[in-house]
Computed example of a mutant assay.
Amino acid sequence: MRHLLLSLLLLSSLAHAELPETDWLDLMPAEDRQALEDMPEISHDSPEGDSAFYGADGLRQQDKDLPAVMYSAKTVAALDGKAIRLGGYPVPLESDEKGNSTLFFLVPYPGACIHVPPPPPNQLVLVRYPKGIPLENIYAPLWVSGELKVETISNELADAAYAMDAGEVRLVTDEDL
């Protein structure tokens, strides 16, 4: 009986153990990472709507002065179907009747897709989370865990090269830091 209890305790702790963190740069092929590292710094300090990125069809208007890596949809095939945990910031797209966010983009830095330019498609993950999560502050970081899929998503706000049906979404807490 004691062995059964120890086994159940071990299984329970493993079931609640989190996946190791995946770095956003791991979502980019090596050539894109290098191009991004070689790119000059981009300012995110401009006011909303005060940019060439805001065209009649939303943020997807391109700036000819930015390198092609800023529009790259190249993915890492080895990540397709892999269970990952990714930290990032939400850009809410759909909510349930309780106001909980059930569909959102996860982005690597706060304000992405609101301020400009939006991240490249291979730095955007569309998260489907039917359980929903209240998102009172889009500047509060989240942990999102689930199976990552190479999937092209395009909407009026941005394009994404990845999607995830999340099994868990939670706010980052002080204990995580």
Score class of each variant (00 low, 15 high):
residue 80 D to I: 03
residue 91 V to Y: 13
residue 57 D to H: 06
residue 36 L to R: 14
residue 130 P to T: 01
residue 169 V to A: 00
residue 119 P to E: 07
residue 31 E to T: 10
residue 120 P to A: 15
residue 29 P to S: 02
residue 147 E to R: 13
residue 69 V to W: 03
residue 58 G to L: 08
residue 146 G to D: 01
residue 157 L to S: 14
residue 29 P to E: 05
residue 59 L to H: 13
residue 22 T to L: 09
residue 2 R to I: 04
residue 57 D to M: 10
residue 173 T to Y: 06
residue 162 Y to H: 08
residue 47 P to Y: 11
residue 124 L to V: 15
residue 148 L to P: 09
residue 123 Q to S: 12
residue 86 L to Q: 01
residue 97 E to H: 15
residue 69 V to R: 07
residue 86 L to V: 01
residue 63 D to S: 09
residue 102 T to K: 01
residue 26 D to G: 12
residue 162 Y to C: 09
residue 90 P to S: 09
residue 52 A to P: 11
residue 49 G to K: 06
residue 56 A to W: 14
residue 107 V to D: 03
residue 8 L to C: 12
residue 24 W to A: 03
residue 21 E to I: 09
residue 20 P to K: 06
residue 124 L to I: 15
residue 162 Y to D: 03
residue 154 S to R: 11
residue 128 R to K: 11
residue 82 K to N: 10
residue 143 W to C: 04
residue 124 L to T: 12
residue 163 A to H: 07
residue 33 R to F: 03
residue 134 P to Q: 04
residue 150 V to L: 06
residue 139 Y to V: 13
residue 99 G to V: 00
residue 62 Q to E: 08
residue 17 A to N: 08
residue 53 F to Y: 15
residue 160 A to T: 09
residue 31 E to Q: 04
residue 169 V to C: 03
residue 29 P to K: 06
residue 78 A to R: 08
residue 141 P to L: 04
residue 127 V to Y: 02
residue 114 I to F: 11
residue 74 K to W: 03
residue 146 G to Q: 04
residue 147 E to I: 11
residue 114 I to T: 11
residue 104 F to A: 09
residue 68 A to T: 13
residue 119 P to H: 01
residue 149 K to M: 07
residue 42 I to S: 08
residue 95 S to M: 10
residue 171 L to A: 10
residue 60 R to G: 01
residue 125 V to P: 05
residue 63 D to P: 08
residue 64 K to V: 09
residue 43 S to D: 08
residue 160 A to E: 10
residue 33 R to N: 10
residue 169 V to I: 05
residue 174 D to I: 07
residue 129 Y to V: 02
residue 19 L to F: 05
residue 12 S to V: 00
residue 131 K to R: 03
residue 119 P to G: 09
residue 19 L to M: 14
residue 136 E to C: 08
residue 21 E to Q: 12
residue 131 K to W: 00
residue 128 R to F: 02
residue 33 R to Q: 12
residue 99 G to C: 01
residue 4 L to Y: 09
residue 165 D to M: 14
residue 18 E to Y: 10
residue 166 A to L: 02
residue 64 K to A: 05
residue 30 A to R: 03
residue 27 L to G: 00
residue 166 A to F: 02
residue 139 Y to R: 15
residue 40 P to F: 01
residue 139 Y to E: 15
residue 87 G to C: 05
residue 12 S to G: 02
residue 76 V to H: 02
residue 109 Y to F: 12
residue 45 D to C: 07
residue 11 L to W: 02
residue 44 H to C: 13
residue 82 K to I: 08
residue 39 M to Y: 04
residue 18 E to Q: 15
residue 43 S to Q: 00
residue 68 A to N: 14
residue 122 N to Y: 02
residue 49 G to P: 11
residue 64 K to Q: 04
residue 19 L to E: 12
residue 125 V to N: 05
residue 156 E to D: 12
residue 107 V to H: 06
residue 28 M to L: 15
residue 42 I to R: 06
residue 109 Y to T: 11
residue 126 L to F: 06
residue 44 H to Q: 13
residue 134 P to Y: 07
residue 99 G to K: 01
residue 130 P to L: 05
residue 148 L to G: 10
residue 48 E to H: 15
residue 61 Q to T: 10
residue 157 L to P: 12
